[in-house]
């Protein structure tokens, strides 16, 4: 559960100025559907005085998005348009006695809706100049975009430097991996060595495949190596048939092995050895099962 202030809760459960203003002459639609917050701000501005006489909001969003929208409408009512434009997202958060770091973007949305609405009132086109990335450092609320821009602008190359410039990583250390990833990406672009070791060589080159005859010999060879152990327990094993299409080797267990309760476990062990020696998957089944395939 989020740690919402009393004031946030109050503005969420009892939103002020909900709904569209009648006869509005300024509308601002902002938000991002993918991240789940969107806001339509409507204002009624007196064209003579530029004073905002009424404000209303419609919000698709979480508790703090609704509360931020509600707070914004309360704040701007009675202000001139120019005064209202001076409201920062921090002012909105302060008005609500603070927002959790993950939720600061809700207040940013409020400020931008205001800018968009004013642009609409003045007949201008509003362009969003703000880009937001995934939150990397939760201690100091620093997102990926800010980190990336700071690294590029200042030619940073260590996590310590990033912390020095942005505070990101200066708290609980949980985001070091995230910062390193961004650093690596940018340093690769700059053609520099990575901060951390590159991943190990993934796959060995495949060996030339064996022929069926070679495989059969190998299986026999493995079984020969196993036989002394079985013979020590008065049992024995012999290869009967290999079906390479179905990847099955059929064997006869004889002596004490036949009918032994551990026969299945023995075959499992044999299969393991055969697979390891052969370097590919194969099932080892008793020859009595040959008819079933």
């Amino acid at each position: 559960m989020w740690d919402y202030s009393e004031k946030v809760q109050d503005h969420f459960f009892k939103p002020r100025n909900a709904g569209a203003v009648a006869n509005a002459n300024a509308t601002g639609d902002v938000g991002s559907l993918s991240c789940g917050d969107a806001l339509r701000l409507t204002l009624k501005v007196n064209p003579e005085t530029d004073i905002i006489e009424d404000a209303g909001f419609q919000t698709f969003g979480c508790g703090s998005a609704v509360a931020s929208s509600s707070a914004l409408t309360e704040m701007v009512k009675g202000m001139t348009v120019d005064q209202a434009l001076k409201i920062s997202n921090q002012d909105i958060a302060d008005y609500l006695d603070g927002l959790p770091p993950e939720k600061m973007h809700c207040s940013v949305m409020g400020r931008e809706a205001l800018q968009a609405a004013v642009a609409n009132y003045r007949g201008e086109e509003w362009k969003d100049d703000h880009e937001e990335g995934a939150l990397i450092c939760k201690c100091f609320a620093v997102d990926a975009v800010l980190i990336e821009e700071t690294i590029r602008a200042n030619h940073l190359s260590t996590v310590e430097e990033v912390t020095f410039y942005t505070k990101a990583g200066g708290g609980c250390s949980a985001c070091f991996e995230g910062i390193e990833e961004i650093l690596n990406k940018i340093m690769l672009e700059r053609d520099e060595e990575e901060v951390v070791a590159p991943p190990p060589e993934p796959v060995k080159p495949a060996k030339a495949p064996l022929t069926n005859l070679q495989r059969m010999r190998r299986i026999e060879h493995t079984l020969e190596a196993i036989r002394p152990q079985l013979q020590a327990d008065r049992g024995d094993i012999e290869l009967v048939e290999v079906d390479f299409d179905k990847k099955i080797a059929f064997v006869n267990l004889s002596g004490a092995c036949s009918g032994c309760q551990m026969a299945a476990a023995t075959l499992g062990g044999v299969q393991q050895r055969v697979m390891e020696d052969l370097g590919e998957f194969i099932r080892v089944l008793p020859a009595t099962e040959m008819g079933k395939f």
Partner: peptide, 11 residues
């Protein structure tokens, strides 16, 4: 399953 309940940017 909303984004906001987890603090992520995606639902």
């Amino acid at each position: 399953g909303s984004a906001c309940t987890s603090g992520s940017l995606e639902p």
